[in-house]
Simulated scan of single mutants.
Amino acid sequence: MSANQSSAQESTARQQAVTVLGLGPMGRALAGAFLAAGVRTTVWNRTPGREGDLAERGAVLAASAAEAVAASPVTIICLVNYDATDAVLRQDAVEAALKGRTLVNLSADVPERARDTGRWAEEHGVAYVDGAIMTPAGTIGSPDGVFLFSGPSTTYEEHRAVLDSLGGTHTHLGEEVSRAAAYDIALLDIFWTSMGGFVHALALADAEGISPRELAPFASGIARILPPLFDELSGDVEDGTYSGAINPLTSGVSTMAHVVHAAEAHAIDSGVMRAIEGMARRTVALGHGTDGFSRVAEVLRRR
């Protein structure tokens, strides 16, 4: 982005107003970024006293969710899940205040809940964009933040200047309102299974006399080989090739069994690795032993 474009974007953002519902760590970070960009920001939280220094920085504290929504053309809601957002939004006063305005939901939940909220918004005359934040609260307002959005592109573009004031990279994934949630769930799958594997590895290494800090640089080495493997496996699955020329499943299953055996010898729970080994053995039993690990994705999708 050029300096002129950035200046124009900031100027446009300063003419806008935004409401933030939810002042947990992420909500406060969102409101703080809007304030730093000069956007008039109204905030509200279900539990009073969570606003921190936002009022001192210029935020308007609303007495109710309906009052907060009525203060701005666009409302950002960021709560723990859609049960929480429903409890706030699906009240007569809030629905009336939202009518004719835009709601951007940055809470996390499953795709079906995003579709349900999209239907509710349409029924109540609310322009709706669903979104997901893929980076921690500390990245908000910096170049490191990553935001995903889905829903009507015209609505997204209408409020693009205000949303861009959150910093980072923003990707609109399409008109289908649940696509951001679908990406979020898939990416969280990678994150949490990876984190689970890492802490399991720390426990196993410790049982063998290797400290966490001793293992860490080698673990980072494993992490560096994953991105090209992700690209390769994604191509295999999309093209239906499932190549096992370098590392067939039969070989992979053997190494998985070694991890399970070593861990359980130290009485370490190996449920996650046993599940992965079980998926691989099932795939081998179906006649795919010479295929690569990517074949497991196809087997998991079978009805």
Rank of each mutant, 00 (worst) to 15 (best):
H200T: 09
H200P: 04
F198Y: 15
A186N: 11
W192T: 13
A205M: 13
D189W: 11
W192Q: 08
G209K: 10
G209M: 03
L187D: 01
I210N: 02
L188Q: 14
G196T: 12
A203V: 04
A207W: 00
D206P: 00
L215E: 12
D206H: 08
E208W: 03
D206K: 11
G196C: 05
I190A: 12
E214W: 05
A207L: 02
L202Y: 02
F191C: 07
S211A: 15
W192M: 11
G196Q: 03
I210E: 05
P217L: 06
L188T: 03
F191S: 03
I210R: 03
T193V: 14
M195G: 07
P217W: 07
L202W: 02
L188Y: 04
A205N: 00
L215A: 10
P212F: 10
R213Y: 05
G196W: 02
W192N: 01
A201R: 10
L204Q: 08
G209S: 08
W192A: 06
A203D: 09
D206F: 04
A203C: 01
F198K: 04
A203Q: 09
S211D: 15
A201Y: 04
A203I: 03
A216V: 06
P212W: 10
A216G: 07
D189V: 01
S211P: 01
L204S: 15
A201G: 13
G197H: 01
E208S: 15
E208I: 05
F198G: 11
D189G: 14
E214S: 13
A201I: 00
S194K: 02
F198P: 10
T193Y: 12
L188M: 13
D189C: 09
I210A: 11
L202M: 13
E208Q: 15
F198H: 09
A216W: 08
A203K: 07
M195V: 13
R213W: 08
H200F: 12
L188E: 07
S194H: 06
A186H: 04
V199E: 12
H200M: 03
A201P: 06
W192G: 04
A203L: 11
A201N: 09
A205S: 15
A186E: 06
F198T: 05
S211F: 05
G196D: 04
A201M: 07
D206T: 14
M195A: 14
E208T: 02
W192K: 02
F198E: 06
I185Y: 10
E208N: 15
I185S: 11
D189P: 00
W192Y: 15
P212M: 13
D189E: 10
V199Q: 00
H200S: 13
E214H: 10
S211K: 14
L215K: 05
S211T: 14
G196K: 04
A201K: 04
G197N: 08
A205I: 10
I185G: 11
L187T: 06
A201V: 01
D189H: 15
A207R: 07
G196F: 06
G196M: 07
L202D: 04
D206V: 05
R213C: 02
L188W: 06
E208K: 13
I190F: 12
V199S: 10
